[in-house]
Design a protein around this nucleic acid. Structure first.
Length: 297
DNA sequence: CTGTGGTCCTGTATGC
DNA sequence: TGCATACAGGACCACA
């Protein structure tokens, strides 16, 4: 569920609350989120105890919590994972799965309704966990290059939305911000990425960066309690969504009724007027001409 | 390299 | 009210 803005909001919350804190003990309330740990639930509890958190980090939607000893806890929140930092004796919210008892009479709690997510101990992963090496830079990373991302996107012939959702090309985007970015760029989700001009893709990458930045600034998008920050507070970007969740409502640009469609199982909301179906050989070059030349000088 | 569909889970909304 | 079905912010896998 959480996309980059939500994960970044969580990361910032954790940075202020758990950096420098030592884990005194661990309770695993459900084994599923710890399924990747080779020595099981008991091994996980034992190996996490007595470690001290450094500064939480993020790459796209992936989060990791470095320990001062050089290892890290890699977190995949997937659809419904979240963290809370609460007083040790405060009531547990529903679906609390793992509790880390800290040395300041508070607890870091991992909550996950659907449990698609999980926690993985990464050996020597404090700086750059190998588990995340396949994930590309996200648009808010200081080393991100819009030009390189544009080249990588235009090398694919798949539908542009599928490319946006592919975390190995450019990371951080999920279904919400993909629809928002495509609406801003006035592109249809099925348009083959390779059929777009460099200018169009540069513009799209710019819109992606803008949307993610604006969403981070208001704490992400909350529709319900499935996404809240580490204090339980909702984000406010839902009020600014132009496409996602607005099918049947008027387009903010032209007033046409937005429609919902599907692309390989994911819902897509678009404006039929502003984001028309892509036709080969209409305005831009066809995908059959092959990928653009890239990386030349 | 593509696209599709199933899978991991739980909960909610909708329709009959 | 009960029951069945579809769908949900993600990502991985097998398969064609």
């Amino acid at each position: 569920m959480p996309e980059l803005p939500e994960v970044e909001t969580i990361r910032r919350g954790l940075a202020t609350h758990i950096s420098g804190r030592t884990i005194q003990s661990v309770d695993v309330l459900h084994p599923r989120p710890v399924r990747s740990h080779p020595t099981g639930v008991d091994g996980f509890r034992f190996e996490l105890t007595d470690r001290t958190f450094g500064a939480p980090a993020r790459k796209g939607k992936a989060l990791w919590l470095p320990f001062l000893d050089g290892d890290a806890l890699v977190v995949a929140l997937r659809m419904s994972g979240q963290f809370r930092v609460d007083q040790a004796n405060s009531p547990l919210v529903r679906h609390t799965r793992v509790r880390f008892h800290l040395d300041d009479s508070r607890e870091l709690r991992y909550i996950d309704q659907r449990m698609f997510g999980g926690l993985t101990l990464s050996a020597q992963g404090a700086d750059a966990p190998s588990e995340l090496s396949h994930i590309a830079l996200d648009p808010l990373d200081p080393h991100f290059s819009a030009e390189r991302a544009t080249d990588a996107i235009r090398r694919r012939r798949r539908p542009i939305k599928a490319v946006l959702l592919d975390q190995s090309i450019m990371s951080g985007i999920g279904n919400i911000y993909a629809d928002e970015s495509l609406w801003r760029a006035q592109l249809h989700h099925s348009t083959p990425a390779a059929s777009l001009t460099a200018q169009q893709v540069m513009s799209l990458v710019g819109h992606v960066t803008d949307v993610l930045t604006e969403a981070v600034n208001v704490g992400g998008t909350s529709f319900d309690d499935l996404y809240v920050d580490v204090s339980g507070t909702q984000g406010y970007f839902a009020h600014q969504l132009a496409a996602y969740g607005r099918s049947g409502m008027p387009c903010n640009r032209c007033g046409t009724t937005l429609v919902m469609e599907r692309l390989s199982g994911r819902s897509c909301v678009r404006c039929p007027e502003c984001q028309p179906v892509w036709e080969p050989n209409r305005t831009h070059r066809g995908a059959q001409q092959g990928p653009p030349k890239i990386g030349v000088q």
